[in-house]
Amino acid sequence: MLQVKALQKSFDGFLAVNDTTLNVEKGDVVAVIGPNGAGKTTLFHLITGQLAPTSGSILFKEENIAGMLPYLVCRKGISRSYQVVNIFNRLTVFENVQVAVLSYRKKTFNIFQPAKTMAVSETRKILGSVGLLDKSEMTSGSLSHGDQKVLEIAIALGNRPELLILDEPTAGMSPEETAVTLRLMERLSGELGLTILFCEHDMGMVFSIASRIMVMKQGKSIIQGSPDEVRNNQQVREAYLGGADQCST
């Protein structure tokens, strides 16, 4: 579904992503792991169009989307959440998700219908599936951090993505919230059949959910394989897992 080939991104000569290769098949749950500064977030920014790559190609369903503007990438069927909470602070939880649903339905230039009556059932369904339905009338800026992170995912679901990209979905969450989010991701993958690409520092979580894992270090992709392959790979053990203890804390 998604093939990243020989991708490079340099900032004033500094190679944040250098010769990265990544393969995501339909139905996969792929985790990208690596120490801080390995280029994981930059890689996601490149895929979803927030940044334009210096060179290399990103094929999504056989189409090169490298350098495409974010809103066009989204319309191709890729949605994402952010590492740092990135929601519509002054809107209610309901409205946050509704904006994405309205965008998906191409209603953003409709100026006469009352928005309150539109896309209600779908929005509520999404909120129900992530467990935010009872908070739907709260202003999103006043939610707890954990709930805001969940809302991040809910907004991304509003576009009915085929590929869902989650940038550290459990960052800053309590262990209970992490467990809930983990179950949510399992459901999204299992019940909805979503393809998920995510990065995460919590190794326990990564190895419990990911069907494939890609390891990045200093902008390079070292290896991509099944959890067992990655766990047993000598190079990974030396290069990365030795430092994983620090990262996961």
Partner: peptide, 26 residues
């Protein structure tokens, strides 16, 4: 009516977070 339409709702989204709006296809 316009402010409360999908257009207005989207507009408020852009006010709060233009980057995120791009990411949801706007």
């Amino acid at each position: 009516i316009i402010v409360n339409s999908p257009f207005g709702r989207t507009f408020q989204g852009i006010r709060d977070n233009p980057e995120r709006c791009e990411a949801v296809g706007i």
